[in-house]
Simulated scan of single mutants.
Amino acid sequence: MRIAVIGAGALGSTFACLLAEQGHDLVVTMRGASLPAVLADGIHVTGGYGDRFARPLAVERLVEPCDLALICTKAQDAAAAIAENAAALDGTPVLVVQNGLDGVSTAERLLPRSECFGLITIIAAHYEGPGRVRVTTAAPSYLGRGDGPVDAATRRWQAVLDAAVPTLALDNFVGAQWTKLVVNMLNALPAITGLSVQEVIGQADLRRLMTRSMRETVRVGLASGVRFHTLQGLSHRRLRAFAVAPLWAGQVLPLSMRARMGKVANQGSTLQSLARGRRTEIDFLNGAVVQAAAEAGVAAPVNALLTKLVHEVERSGRFLTPAEVRSRHW
């Protein structure tokens, strides 16, 4: 099968390498120094899936149709990447591998003749350079679309992915996106402070602030009529209880997440974007909570603050100390 991967960052490179090892014909889009590097030396993935290597066709943009496409850009770059490759993607089934809530709807708008699906992945991967990725946490991915039951088309593409990397088909995919959004509240404070996720959770004041952003996300989801789908042990019932629990008790959630990460430093995708000099997707993470809150007629002050602080770091190029974060927090 000919499979295109749009965007060869940490996750795009990982999926391209693992799918190529299954015998698929992979073509990967990339720009700048990444293109000649991957053409010359392929893609190397180390860590959670062992040492893997593939040499996919690397191009700036697609020029021929394919059987399946994975959109693996950051959320803020998705619309431009899809539009640039729209001629070749027209009518091709598309799997959007992104954080946030809007990836599938963006693909559907730009590719009205394509079947579009979302892929939630819990894999943690670190981009170490063109064609070089270290997987710090190997974990399942989840495929689906809409808020209804799994359909036959979803099961077909789930089987293709599952042969390369553990993938499950999900009912109520929209609810799962919201659960992943709660998990993605791990990202903002590392990007603001320059600390790893584990280090942030290890500091009591920062951990409390992270917990507040997570609880606020759950409350906004509930106000929006969302029924959360279970991911990583986070069920609708558990998240509802978390949203009303005392702050001291709620901190068990980020602490349990840190325990699952192990000792390998997890920077989080937002901090990785800053390290590469790229715009972050904070407007599609904490910013998505703020937007949903406005639409539901409720407030999201913690997520609004964290969104603002990440943008401040983007502009200044300087991380904030934990003391500075505390001083900005009301």
Rank of each mutant, 00 (worst) to 15 (best):
H311T: 09
G268Q: 03
L57P: 08
A164S: 13
R260L: 15
K308H: 15
G297D: 05
R258L: 07
R279T: 04
A275W: 01
N303F: 06
N266S: 13
I123N: 03
A87W: 03
N187R: 06
K180T: 01
A299P: 03
S269G: 10
D102P: 00
R31I: 04
L231W: 01
G202S: 08
V226Q: 05
G297V: 02
A300I: 05
L68K: 02
V244E: 15
A288C: 11
G146Y: 04
R279E: 15
V94F: 05
T179F: 02
V133R: 04
R328W: 07
D151G: 04
A80G: 11
L231K: 02
V183Y: 11
A294D: 14
H236A: 11
T217E: 08
N184S: 12
R318Y: 00
G100D: 04
K308L: 10
A10R: 06
Q267N: 14
L70V: 11
S235A: 12
V59I: 09
T136S: 15
A292T: 12
V38L: 06
V27N: 10
I43L: 10
S13A: 14
F319G: 00
F15R: 01
A191Y: 00
L253G: 05
V264L: 11
I6E: 05
R215N: 07
A138L: 10
A300Y: 02
C17Q: 03
P149G: 07
D41R: 15
S114G: 08
N303W: 02
Y49G: 08
S141C: 13
G317S: 10
L189Y: 03
N187L: 10
